[in-house]
């Protein structure tokens, strides 16, 4: 695998199950065992009812585009060759929203509300990112 130069996540004791899940092709978030709240980003206990018991639950990996932007400026030298690149905020079917990149689509075709599904991108041996593509496969 070519050396990956873009920023990598700072994985903490809280977020480790999330990243391990992605590595194993599961999108998992914490769901409260008491009030059923599902939340992101990872937290020590339920932000709704403060219950300390929760389960890392596998999610559908489907959602829709809530908003999106196109970077025309390279803030990191490691993304210089990818300008212009997209960043989307995807609202999962189960509710929480994730920032991500849309793949398999031209930037000009991105629309708010379009259905998308997860694509697991193994960027290093340790880290897998959650990217998304149009539901049913990309157009390119």
């Amino acid at each position: 695998m070519a050396e990956y130069k873009k920023p990598l996540p700072a994985i903490s004791s809280l977020s480790e199950p999330y990243w391990t899940g992605l590595k194993h092709r599961d999108l998992k978030l914490q769901r409260c065992n008491d009030c059923q709240t599902l939340w992101y980003p990872p937290g020590p206990f339920c932000p709704g009812c403060w219950s300390r018991t929760f389960t890392w639950q596998n999610l559908s990996g489907r959602g829709k585009v809530n908003s999106w932007v196109i970077f025309h400026q390279a803030y990191f030298s490691s993304v210089k060759d990818e300008i212009p690149y997209n960043v989307a905020e995807v609202e999962l079917e189960e509710g929480p929203r994730l920032l991500t990149n849309l793949v398999g689509i031209d930037n000009a075709d991105i629309k708010i509300g379009m259905p998308v599904e997860i694509v697991f991108d193994d960027v290093t041996e340790e880290v897998t990112l959650a990217k998304f593509r149009p539901l049913g496969g990309g157009s390119k």
Partner: peptide, 8 residues
């Protein structure tokens, strides 16, 4: 979220 290039 710099991991996805979301920065600034």
């Amino acid at each position: 979220d710099p991991v996805y290039g979301m920065t600034s």
